[in-house]
Simulated scan of single mutants.
Amino acid sequence: MFSRAIQRQTRQTTRLFSTASKQLNHHGPSGPYSNLFKVHNRRIPYAVPHTLFFVLGFGIPFFACWVQLKRSGSL
């Protein structure tokens, strides 16, 4: 009983790899992820709002700390 279960399990996990039937092209111009970072027809490049978002996001807490320390007289 257990030997049949083990044999059945080993048969199911055996995979045959073959690359002759299909050519894999990971660096081609087409595919589902080919336009992931290409944003066309924009007046402002995508890097500008992206950079401003992170500068403001990381800068506001530091500015708030500086204002509070300045008010308390620690600076």
Rank of each mutant, 00 (worst) to 15 (best):
F2W: 01
F2P: 01
A5H: 03
I6Q: 09
I6F: 08
I6R: 06
R8S: 13
R8Q: 08
R8F: 05
Q9H: 05
Q9R: 08
R11C: 01
R11W: 04
Q12W: 08
T13Q: 10
T14P: 01
F17N: 13
T19R: 04
T19P: 03
T19A: 08
K22I: 00
Q23R: 14
Q23Y: 01
N25D: 10
N25I: 01
N25T: 05
H26I: 03
H26D: 06
H27K: 11
G31I: 06
G31K: 05
P32Q: 09
P32H: 12
Y33Q: 11
S34D: 08
N35I: 04
N35M: 07
L36T: 08
L36Y: 06
F37N: 15
K38H: 06
V39Q: 12
R42W: 03
R42F: 03
R43E: 14
P45K: 00
Y46M: 10
Y46W: 03
Y46I: 04
A47K: 05
V48S: 02
P49A: 01
P49W: 00
H50D: 07
T51M: 13
T51S: 13
T51V: 13
L52I: 10
F53E: 11
F54H: 15
V55F: 06
L56Q: 09
F58C: 10
G59F: 08
I60P: 00
I60D: 00
P61Q: 03
P61E: 02
F62S: 09
F62Y: 15
F62T: 09
A64I: 08
C65V: 15
C65H: 03
W66A: 07
W66M: 06
W66F: 11
V67H: 12
V67A: 09
V67M: 07
L69G: 15
L69E: 12
K70W: 06
R71N: 09
R71G: 02
S72L: 11
G73D: 09
G73L: 13
S74H: 13
S74M: 09
L75Y: 12
